[in-house]
C-alpha cells in the first residue's frame, strides 16, 4: 500500500527533495503551489489502491518487440560541424561547459 506521512502524501520537504532530484531550482511561491498540486494529483492517483494487481505483469511497452538489431555497417551521418551548429558554446570541435572540477 502507498505510504502516508500523517494526513498529507507530500510535504514541502518532499517537494524540495524531488526538485533537487529533477535539477529544478524552485522559488518559494512555486514550491507552495507545486506542493498543493502534487498533493491533489497523488491523492487522485491513490484510486489505484483499489485495483488488485497481485498476479498481473507490468506493461511497459504495448508491442511484442524484443531487441531490434541492425547490420553493423558504415553509413552517412551528421558531420561534426553540422552537429555542433546547435551547440550553446563550442571549443575546437567539442561542446563547451562550465568548469566542473574546482
Amino acid at each position: 500500500m502507498i505510504k502516508t506521512k500523517g494526513s498529507k502524501i507530500v510535504t514541502q520537504d518532499d517537494v524540495r527533495y524531488i526538485a533537487s532530484l529533477s535539477r529544478i531550482s524552485l522559488r518559494d511561491e512555486e514550491m507552495a503551489r507545486l506542493t498543493r498540486n502534487l498533493e491533489d494529483i497523488l491523492h487522485y492517483v491513490r484510486k489505484l489502491e483499489e485495483v488488485d494487481v497481485r498476479h498481473i505483469e507490468p506493461t511497459s511497452h504495448v508491442l511484442p518487440l524484443k531487441n531490434v538489431y541492425r547490420e553493423d555497417r558504415m553509413r552517412p551521418s551528421l558531420t561534426r560541424e553540422d552537429a555542433l551548429q546547435i551547440a550553446v558554446q563550442q571549443h575546437e570541435g567539442f561542446f563547451k561547459v562550465p568548469k566542473v572540477i574546482q
Binding site: V15, I18, S22, V51, E57, P58
Partner: peptide
C-alpha cells in the same frame, strides 16, 4: 517532471510506477 520523478524515486517506485504499469496491463 516533478510528478514523474516522484513516482520513479526510491521508496515510491513500486507503489506508483510499477503499480501503474500493472493497471496498464488490465
Amino acid at each position: 517532471i516533478m510528478l514523474g520523478t516522484y513516482s520513479l524515486s526510491s521508496g515510491y517506485y513500486d507503489d506508483y510506477y510499477l503499480k501503474g504499469l500493472k493497471v496498464r496491463t488490465l
